[in-house]
Structures are given as C-alpha cells and as structure tokens.
Nucleic acid binder design. Structure first.
Length: 1009
RNA sequence: AGUCUCGUAGCUCAGCUGGUUAGAGCACUACACUGAUAAUGUAGGGGUCGGCGGUUCAAGUCCGCCCGAGACUACCA
C-alpha cells in the first residue's frame, strides 16, 4: 500500500531543497512547466540581465525571488512563461576590474596593451563569476533559462542594437552636440556620474572666490537707474578662472534687487552696485555699515573705520534683463555673435542663498550656464575662439591650461593642482585674477571659501566642467509620448511610477549616448573628415555592402570584421555619396542602451524572429521587476527605446523592489563586514525559508532589514507548523491506510468544523490569487501564514486530533482525513510560487501516495480556484464567535483561578439578538469541550441579569450632531436601562443639547454589554 | 540642494475613503497539556502612533513646518 513519506523526523529544509532540486533537474520540470502551456496564451517576462562580473549577493536573491514568484504563479494559472536569461557584459565596472587585475590605467591602453588584448581580457573577465551565478540561481530555486541566455557582447545582439540606433537615426533622433560634462584634465577623460559618485570623490576644498563688479553700459540702463553715475552689477564666483569666459549675467526675474551707493573697499572709489535685496546684509557685513543719510555717505573718508552704504532704490530681476555691460576681462571675444554677449538674462535656477543673487554665466564651463544662455533670446554665445585648425574651442584646453595667446594667463593651468609636483607657481590663476580685478576697481570682495568639490577618483585632482562633443538621442522630442505611455503602466508601488519616474520624464534631458571607452558597442556612425556627410549602419549586411562600395571606390581591400567591437570596427573606412572616405565616430554607446534594447536584441530582432515583436508574442512584457535604483536605469531605457522606436510601452507591470539592508538598517558593504552571504544563508536555512522571510516580512518595495533571526522565525513558525501538520496527518493516515481511495464526501455530510476549514480554505484561495494577480506577494504570504497557524493548526487540527486516532476507520474519520488532505494539498499549490521546493515536497508526498492528480510536480499543477459554493460566511462568523468566546472564558478562568482541568457547570452568555443563539448553538459543543464546561445558558435582558449600556456610533452621529457630538456621546453613555429598552423598541430617542433637539435611532447607538 | 519614500510596543510589521478602549507575530513573564511532545496551547505586561502647529464635533490617518533614516538626481554662481 502506498505510504505518505515520513522520512523526515523533523523539518530539514536544506535537505528538502536538495531532494527537490535534483528531482527537478532529472525530470526537466522547469522545461515541462513552460512547454505544457499553450504558445498562444503567453505571459511575457523580461529578465534584467545581471553582470557576471560581480558576485551574487543576498539582494539578488531578493530581486529574483520577486521575479520568480509571479512567473511561477502565472505558469500555474495556465500561462506560458518563457524566461530567457541574459548577461550584461559591457560597461565601466568591467573595464575597471580588468584594469585592476592588469594593474593598468586607461592611458596604458594602446601603449602597454593593445585594444584588442584589452577587450579580450574584458570578454574573459566578464564571465568570471558565471558559475557562482548559475549556482545561486539553482540553489535559490529561481527558474530562468540558463542554457540559451542572451549575451550583450555577441554580434547578433550588437546588430540588433545597431538596427535600433538606425531607426532613431532615420527619425532624426540622433545628433552630435556638445554639453558640459565633468572632465578630468589630469586623466584626459570625461567622467560619468557613476565615477563621480565613487566614495571620496567629493572633498572639502578652500577656493579663492571673487565678487566681481560688472560695469553696465549707461545707454542700456532702464530709466530708474540713470543719474547715479557708474552702475555695477555684483556677481560671485568660486571659480575665478572662468571669469574670462563670462558672456552673461543671470538674474532671477522674480527676485528683488537693490541699487546701493557705497565705496569700493580696495580702491575707495565711490560706486553704485546692484545685488539681491536678500543678500545685502551678507555682502555688506563687517567693514560696512548702513546709512540712511546721503550726507553721511558723501562725508566718508578713507581713514574711517566703517564704509557706509546707502540703498537708493529697488526693483525686480525682470527689470534688469537686457542691461548690457563691459566685458570684465578682455582676453578674448566670442567668435560668433559677440554683439549678443555681455548682457543680463533671466534664469529660474538663481537663488538668494549665496553670493549676490546674480550668477556669473560662462556657458563653456557650466551646465546651467550653457542651458540658460541657449534659452535667452537672442541666444548668448559661449566664449569660444578659433584655434589654429579653425575649430571653435574654449579658452581652456583639454589639459586644463589657458590657451597660449591669452596675455599673462596664457599657458597657465587653471588650477594649481594640475601642475606636475613642485612646478606650481606661488600664485594660482585664481589669485592672480583676484589681484588684477582689485587693482582695476572690478573686485567688490575677495574671500576664501570652503565648499565641497568633485575630484577625479583616479588622479585625485579637481574635476573641470568642460564642453565635450557627444552623440545624443533627442529624447526630449518624444517626451510627451513617453509621459502618455507611462500612464498606462502599472507600477508597484504606484508612487515610483507617478512621482519618481513621472518627475524624471517631466524633466527629461536628451540622452547622452557617447562614452569614450573601449569595451562596449561601437557607435555605428561614419563621418567624413569635415563632418558634412555621414551614415548610420543598421545591420551587418548593410556594413558589408558599404565596405564593398568603399573598397571599389577607394581601392581598398577591407572585409567585414568578424568581431564588431573595437578596434576591428575602427579600421573600417566607408565612402560617402560624394566619394570621400568616412571614418567611424570613435565613441561607444552608453551600456544602458544595451540593456534597454534587450526586448529586441535578445531575439536578434529584426534579422530573426520578426513575429516575436511585430505580432506581440514577446512584446511588450507583461511583467518585469528590478530594484528602484533602476528607475533611471533599466526601466527608463526600456521605456525610452520602446516609446521612440515602437511607440509602445515595453512593460505593462513593473515591480521595483527596495534595498536589502542589514538588521540595523545599515546598507550592506564589504567595508562594514555586514554583508550576508547568500550561499551560507540558503545552506543553513533553506531557500524557501529565505524567500518566504524576504517576501512576508516587508513589502518588496520597502527596504528590508535583513535579519537571520527572522528567517529562523519563519522556519519555526510557518514551515515548522505546516510540517508538523503534515507529520500529524501522515502519522495517522499511514496507520489507517488512508489513501483517498474513498469517494469524496460532500461537504454537507461532514462535520461543522470540516465545513468551516474548507470554507476558510476557499476564501483563502480567492484572496491569495487576487493578491498575486495584483502583484502583492507580501499580503498573499501573510494571509497564508495566518491560515496555517491560527486556523488550520491551532484550531482545526488541535480540536480534531481525537478524530484521527480514536476508533474505527469510520466515515467521520475518513471525512477528517479528506478535509485535512484537501487543506494540505491546496496549501502546497498556494505556497508553490514563494516556497517552490517545500511546496513540491509536500505536494509530492501527498499526491504520490494517493495518485489523486496526474502531475509529477506541483509546478505542473493548476493554481487552485476558489469554489464559492464551499464558502459559508455565516459559518466562518460563528466559528469566529466560538474562538472568541472560548478565549473569553479561558481569560475569566484565569482571573478567577479556575483551571481548565476543573470542569464547570455552565457559562452564561448574554444574547442581544435571536440569530446569535442559532449561530452559537451550531458551535456549542466545540466551545464546551474547549473550555471544559457542561452547558451554555443564554440570557436575555428580560431576566434582568444584563446591565445594558448604550454607546454612540460616532460615524453616523457625527454628521448629525456636529459640534455637539461630544456632549451627545456622553448622554448616550449615561442612558438608563429604561431608555435603552425604549430606544430598542421604538427605534427613537430624543436628546436635547443646548436647546437643540436630536432624534436618535438604533443605528446611532450601539448596544454594549 | 532638489525630488521621493519611511518614522506606530524592545524587534519586525498591520491599521481601508479621518470615527468609539491603536492591532498581530517574535521576544519576555506565568500557566496548561503530555496520544502533533526537541511539538502544542492559554493568559499577561508593554505604545504621549518622530516633534510642533493647523483644519475638524472628531487626527496614527488630512495640511504646513521641523527633526531623524534611506534612495535617486544634481553639484550650482
């Protein structure tokens, strides 16, 4: 006779893990679970590819648990859920780790090591931890196809990416332009924000700051500024070396400004200066004193201790817009439209927190500056000059030196830090300029100032903000489309989509695609030397055709490279329409484009599998999940590419999970040694307990304070209880030989308590399915836990124990077995998405013994469907009464010192309405045996035992009584027995408060005993 | 600096559109059970709901400010 497996004397989750894992592998359960479902009923899931360059951490277990849960759930709901794995193989972290291993820096590439050697090393390194990843994937029970993953460095993948870029190019969404980017002159490279955010990059530095006096041109002044003599505008800078590149002053249109008469503290010349009203006291602190008398001002003498200042008039920033001024330092003029330079423009970013409320604007060295200058009408030109080659260039070169032809500052580094050791001059350019301005009556104030400033993580020297040439995607052109499409996406949690992602889209900038690196997807754009002609290659075939054109036209002998990476692709020369040679733009593309391209590139679309996308078979995704940190990363790039190329969303539902912190809420880091090793955790506690803990403890999008004791609690409390329940069942079922071979008893032939637990079970099935459908796994697990612990184990099994061991193999006993079996079997399915191994172990133990279903694994079974006919809410309610009355009685016993062992004759139960009696009668026996009492006597108010009290129903009465609510509640509380009886009978009771009469009904008062 | 999230018992978390005495689990204490026993059950103590102010008859819940934690974006004269 078939037996229920009872090998395990006590719960051993790691043991179960091992058994089930090997069962899955030998029997190909994952594959079967996917393939048994129809192709035309798919649930599309995208795997955000991890980089195998780092080791898997506990947070990866978290993220992948979320992914796994919904994929497994949908599979059991009958969907075909393909789960193609993938590897992210490009990007800076990989380059950095290679450089670390080889002990080289970027400068060495091309000298100490060739580009192809370097790239070969990257290719090799990127998969260094693949085995660890495959291992954790298996051990944590994450089902994803590891055999056919997409790999972003493959030619097919790159080709799809090129095709996408080609689409953007055709739509005129790709362009080359310059932006201000962090740049390290010492390292000769632009820095990404990722690099800038390395720890220790922001340091406190003391800089020489200048409040400069910009002399306005009289004829451009508005009327109210006339007649005061020379008027200067004050502007503050922490980077005086940018002053020669100044081309505008920016004011806040709504900010209040004042005109002040005073004297320059260095030259003592009388001056009139304009600055923000809010900053007057800050700028005129110390040496200055305010005066209301013009005479006092005029009588000022150099030997006076304090310099007086007098406020002449005030105005709004808007009134200053358009004023022109003399160039402060005349080293060079903008090569284009110099007549539009040196004027006051409006800018909304201006604040009055620091400085003067007027921003010195040098469009070549500040991102805000460049933006506001562009927005001005007419556009303010940046200070660019022509170099020997006839190219427009800023006054500072790529080494961080002023250009040679700039008089005394020519050839000098803009910061002393850039000089080789020991060669820095005593006076930095900043100081030199400060002195010069002081002497020329152009400096209002020179001060040292302490602030944080970013430094290059490699050279440890300050970063420069510098205009660099880059390729951009004109995402701003598609902004509205992206916003509109985002509104159709179901974000979990909603605020990540509405706020974080929504705000990001509202403030969208063009996407800077360029990266000047070596290991990544090359930009497929070729240009002639003079940049007048260009082409964008969208496939390998196209490249081959263009190469042969170039070969015949230019007499070359090129072949299509086997590897599309640098350096091979760099040597390809194409020919333009007019017959000129074209070279590839040397940049690589942002790796984020790689991952955003994954819906298409994973299938080598459109060169292969056209239908997958065109017919919507694998696009868009029904579901994706990743950390919140991907909001501007993967979530955005997926969305941007889908919006721009396909005018579609890329995903319909997205779960963004939070961080995994240590148990004290501190971020895990190697430095602090608070990192949890996922392998150890799973080996010790089992994958299921780990997964269940992570999901049930906090919502996936809240940060999780990861505490091993929490896993232990889940193991004991939840899995332990379920295991014990099963052990209990199998112990007696094996003795009695129950194999569910008898016909299933209809519910109405079973005991009240059987009907009850089956009713609850069906309610649970509905709730849990709804929660999973709604991407709420935490609620689902919490509901299952409550059922298992509170109802199944603590009530059903405990009260029914006797039925399992007492007497013959009777119908009642069989009914009990059937009931418990059904609960356990259903639970195995309900829990399968979260605890796939334990669930399968439980399912197989049950089903292998009874053969009731023909599935070899729970993951091939269908998710349970709630049977509404089995749900009896009245029954659920009266059992709830029974539980509560029992608890109440036990509590009274406790208070009175009457042990449960001591039988009591009867309990008195006050009854408020007659339906209550029939409800209690149905569960009477349960209560009596539970509390060891012989009988229950119902008492009603007619017998005078009950002292009734009425209580206000605040919710309904609040509207009626308004501010008299408090008094009313008090009056109701004090109602006597007669009035209460009266109220119950007539359904009305009149109270009077402050002369106002109110008529109350039963609805407004609630009986309370 | 900005945007967003969070702050409820020693710990981890529930508290729906504002409504009566703010709830679970763990831990702790006491007890019961001894045919689920390296298991199970019951009872109990424990909270000025981060702080201040406002709206309201009524605020853990709504609004403002502040404090603290975290994430992202930016680094700005």
């Amino acid at each position: 006779m078939a037996r229920y497996n009872d090998d395990l004397k006590q719960l051993n989750l790691p043991e179960i893990d091992k058994k089930i894992r090997s069962f899955w592998e030998t029997n190909d359960i994952f594959k079967k679970s996917v393939e048994q479902r129809p192709v035309d009923n798919s649930f599309v899931f995208y795997e955000g590819p991890p980089s195998a360059n780092g080791k898997p951490g506990i947070h990866h277990v978290m993220g992948r648990t979320v992914k796994d849960i919904f994929c497994r759930f949908q599979t059991m709901k009958g969907k075909r859920v393909e789960r193609k794995g993938g590897w992210d193989t490009h990007g800076l972290p990989i380059e950095l780790s290679v450089e670390k291993v080889l002990g080289i820096t970027k400068e060495d590439i091309g000298t100490k090591i060739t580009v192809d050697e370097y790239n070969a090393k990257c290719r090799e390194t990127v998969m260094q931890y693949k085995d660890l990843w495959d291992d954790i994937t298996r051990k944590m029970g994450y089902w994803v196809d590891l055999d056919n993953p997409y790999i972003t460095f493959n030619n097919e993948y790159i080709e799809s990416v090129w095709w996408l870029l080609g689409q953007l190019y055709k739509k005129n969404l790709l362009y080359k332009g310059y932006t201000i980017q962090p740049y390290s002159p010492a390292a000769g490279t632009g820095l990404s924000s990722h690099e800038l955010n390395q720890p220790g990059c922001y340091k406190d530095v003391t800089d020489t700051t200048i409040v400069a006096q910009f002399l306005t041109k009289r004829e451009s002044l508005p009327d109210f500024l006339h007649g005061h003599g020379d008027v200067y505008i004050l502007a503050w800078t922490t980077t005086p070396w940018t002053l020669p590149s100044n081309t505008a002053l920016t004011v806040g249109p709504k900010i209040d400004y004042v005109l002040i008469k005073t004297y320059n503290q260095y030259t003592f010349k009388p001056i009139n200066v304009i600055l923000a009203k809010a900053l007057v006291e800050k700028q005129f602190a110390g040496k200055f004193e305010k005066t209301d008398s013009v005479d006092h001002l005029l009588s000022f003498n150099q030997s006076d201790k304090k310099i007086p200042y007098y406020i002449v008039t005030e105005c709004k920033g808007q009134d200053l817009v358009g004023i022109r001024y003399e160039q402060l330092l005349k080293y060079a003029m903008p090569y284009q439209n110099p007549e539009d330079a040196f004027r006051v423009i409006p800018g909304h970013f201006v604040t009055t927190e620091d400085g003067t409320g007027v921003v010195h604007t040098a469009p070549t060295f500040g991102a805000d500056d460049a933006k506001v200058a562009k927005e001005a009408n007419p556009e303010v030109p940046p200070l660019l000059v022509m170099d020997e080659m006839g190219n427009p260039v800023p006054l500072v070169d790529l080494q961080g030196k002023f250009r040679a032809n700039l008089e005394e500052i020519g050839g000098k580094y803009v910061k002393n830090e850039y000089y080789p050791d020991g060669e820095a001059p005593e006076r930095s350019v900043d100081v030199e300029l400060a002195i010069k301005l002081k002497e020329e009556n152009k400096a209002f104030k020179v001060e040292k100032y302490l602030h944080t400033y970013p430094h290059c993580w490699r050279t440890d020297k300050p970063v420069l903000y510098y205009p660099l040439d880059s390729w951009f995607i004109r995402s701003t052109a598609m902004k509205d489309k992206m916003i509109e499409l985002n509104k159709t996406i179901n974000w979990k949690p909603a605020h990540t989509g509405e706020k974080r992602f929504g705000n990001w889209l509202e403030n969208l900038n063009d996407w800077n695609l360029s990266r000047s690196r070596y290991w990544g997807i090359p930009l497929p754009i070729w240009r002639t030397e003079d940049a007048t002609e260009e082409c964008c290659i969208a496939s390998i075939d196209e490249l081959t055709i263009e190469i042969s054109k170039a070969n015949s036209s230019l007499g070359l002998n090129q072949v299509t490279p086997e590897d599309l990476h640098r350096p091979y692709i760099d040597s390809v020369i194409l020919v333009s329409k007019s017959g000129k040679p074209m070279k590839r733009e040397l940049d690589l593309i942002d790796v984020w484009f790689d991952s955003g391209a994954m819906p298409y590139a994973q299938w080598h679309y459109p060169m292969q599998n056209r239908d997958f996308i065109d017919k919507g078979i694998t696009f868009p995704a029904d579901f994706i999940a990743e950390g919140v940190d991907q909001t501007r990363g993967w979530f955005f790039t997926l969305h941007a590419i889908a919006s721009m190329v396909f005018e579609s969303v890329a995903f319909k539902n997205v779960v963004s999970n939070g961080l995994v912190l240590d148990k004290d809420g501190v971020k895990m880091s190697k430095r602090l040694g608070n990192v949890i090793d996922p392998f150890e955790t799973i080996a010790e506690y089992g994958a299921d307990a780990t997964r269940w803990y992570m999901i049930s403890n906090a919502q996936p999008w809240d940060n999780l304070k990861f505490d091993l004791e929490g896993i232990d609690e889940v193991r004991r409390k939840f899995f332990g209880t379920l295991f014990n329940t099963y052990s209990f069942f199998s112990l007696y079922a094996n003795i009695d030989g129950f194999c569910y071979s008898e016909k299933r008893f209809p519910l109405d032939q079973r005991q009240e308590i059987d009907k009850w637990i089956i009713s609850l079970l069906n309610s649970l099935v509905k709730e849990v399915s709804d929660e999973f459908s709604d991407y709420e796994p935490t609620n689902a697990t919490r509901k299952i836990m409550a059922f298992v612990d509170e109802h199944l184990s603590n009530w059903y099994v405990r009260l029914c124990r006797r039925r399992f061991w007492k007497g013959e193999y009777s119908d009642d006993k069989i009914a009990a077995y059937q009931t418990l079996y059904e609960c356990l079997s259903t639970l195995s399915k309900l829990t399968a998405p979260v605890a796939p191994m334990f669930a399968d172990w439980l399912y197989k133990n049950l089903n292998d013994a009874t053969g009731l279903e023909n599935h070899e694994s729970v993951h091939l079974a269908d998710y349970p469907i709630s049977d509404p006919a089995a749900i009896d809410k009245d029954l659920e309610q009266r059992m709830d009464y029974a539980q509560r009355i029992s608890s109440l009685v036990l509590s009274i016993r406790k208070k009175e010192g009457l042990r449960v062992r001591q039988p009591l004759k009867k309990i008195l139960l006050p009854i408020l309405d007659p339906s209550f009696i029939s409800q209690i009668d149905a569960v009477k026996e349960l209560i009596l045996s539970e509390v060891n009492v012989k009988e229950i006597e119902y008492i009603t108010d007619t017998e005078g035992f009950i002292n009734k009290k009425a209580k206000a129903n605040f919710k309904t009465l609040g509207k009626l009584l308004g501010k008299n609510m408090k008094a009313g509640a008090q009056m109701i509380q004090e109602m006597d027995q007669k009035s209460i009886t009266e109220l119950e009978k007539t359904d009305q009771y009149i109270i009077e408060i402050d002369g106002d009469r109110y008529m109350l009904s039963n609805e407004g008062c609630r009986d309370k005993l």
